[in-house]
Amino acid sequence: MLDQTSRTTSRRAILYRMVMDAHTCPYGLKAKDLLERSGYKVEDRHLASREETDALKARLGVSTTPQIFIGDARIGGYDDLRQYLGKSVADPKATTYRPVIVLFTLMALTAMATSQAALGSPLTVRAAEWFIAFSMVALAMLKLQNVESFSTMFLNYDLLAKRWVPYSYVYPYAEAFAGVLMVAGIFNWLSVPIALFIGTIGAVSVFKAVYIDKRELKCACVGGSSNVPLGFISLTENLMMIAMAIWMALPALGLTAAHAM
């Protein structure tokens, strides 16, 4: 590596990256863009064939491309370049709440946009109902992208699924079905019991795993490959379903006007 003085004075970089007819390395493109945005003049050397790529790897004793040189020093690949420039490098194993924060934010905005289009105002009771229903559908969609992976993670903590494994496959379909019915505001006699059942089982399961057993687990709420930690956000998903089910059941009990605007 170069010392700090050399870093600030050397503004020329050499980049070796794969640019082939059937494949252009995305990390090579990212490296080129990052170097140029950081003020470096890039000598962009394309590896136009697998043979050229393998020859470079063998010569440098590396297993991946792109490869970046600044001055006389080999920096390494794209992540190495980010570290060299003092930028953060994402840890693929690190836990994060980003997926659910993004999902809930977008579903809230979508619900308000729908309310604006349908009712003339973004801030209505129906918008709050749509937010929960849209969130249920979106969360189910993420789970159903790889239901096998979801079910494996879900079995780590769900109390019913541990006793009856097929429930780990049924859950995302039930969540999606109830959510779609709640978006439409129809067949409450069916959507309410489904949401109340899966929400209650889920809330009890998460509470037990996290707050009683003190287990550190990843949540299956946004799919089986997520790094979202099991905890408050996971509990919130289930509590929202319970709240929505109770709210939509109130008209049948004569306690409120159905779908008050």
Rank of each mutant, 00 (worst) to 15 (best):
K162N: 07
F104C: 07
L34K: 07
R82W: 08
V89F: 08
V102G: 00
G179L: 03
A94S: 09
L160R: 06
E52P: 05
G179T: 08
D158Q: 06
P99Q: 03
A161P: 02
Q145K: 14
A118Y: 08
R45N: 14
V165P: 11
D80H: 08
E43W: 08
R126C: 00
R163G: 07
L181R: 08
A138E: 05
I68V: 15
W130D: 00
L181Q: 09
D54G: 01
L144Q: 10
L34A: 11
Y169H: 15
I68K: 03
M112H: 04
T124Y: 09
W164L: 14
L159D: 01
A58N: 11
A113S: 13
V42C: 05
A127E: 06
L144H: 07
S88V: 09
P99T: 01
D80N: 13
T152G: 10
W130A: 07
K162I: 08
E36V: 14
Y40K: 04
D91Q: 01
V62E: 09
L81N: 05
A111W: 03
Y173Q: 04
D44K: 04
N146M: 06
A113V: 00
F177N: 09
A138R: 03
V165L: 13
Y78R: 03
P122Y: 11
Y40S: 07
E36F: 00
S88K: 15
D44T: 11
S63A: 14
S121C: 05
T96E: 01
P92D: 04
S63N: 15
D79S: 03
N146G: 09
A176I: 00
S63V: 12
F131S: 01
V89H: 05
V125T: 13
P122M: 11
A58E: 14
L181Y: 04
T95P: 06
Q83Y: 01
S149N: 04
V170D: 05
F134W: 06
K87I: 03
L144K: 05
V100E: 13
G71M: 00
D91H: 04
M107A: 10
V180M: 14
V147I: 14
G86K: 03
G71S: 02
A161C: 02
A178W: 04
